[in-house]
Amino acid sequence: MNRDLICIICPRGCMLHVEEQNGELCVSGNACPRGKQYAIDECTNPLRTITSIVRVSNREDTMVSVKTANPIPKGKIFDAMEKIRAVSVEAPVKIGDVILNDVFGADIVATKDVE
């Protein structure tokens, strides 16, 4: 492993360099320890929250916005999107309502009320 990445934890945006040495990840370029942790997480198990929309079947031209209740593995983003695209919901919907259970370790929840 030999990777360059920008730290996004704070606005300083350090340029981080990650190298594997004797089976361990060595991080350089970080001005603080949080940068090191970020680099290791990004290289071993990057996670992302995804947000999208789901059609409301009983309301004309109405979408409800949704998100993964917690971050999911970055590599599963498109698989998760496929599952989200395949569903629709019926109004009323409340913020926090679960629209889909356990999509790669996260529930898909509504982020908007639809009456």
Binding site: S65, I95, D113
Partner: peptide, 10 residues
């Protein structure tokens, strides 16, 4: 907390 736009508005 980290919210989406519609949640912040709500």
């Amino acid at each position: 907390q980290e919210l989406t736009g519609p949640e912040y508005a709500a």
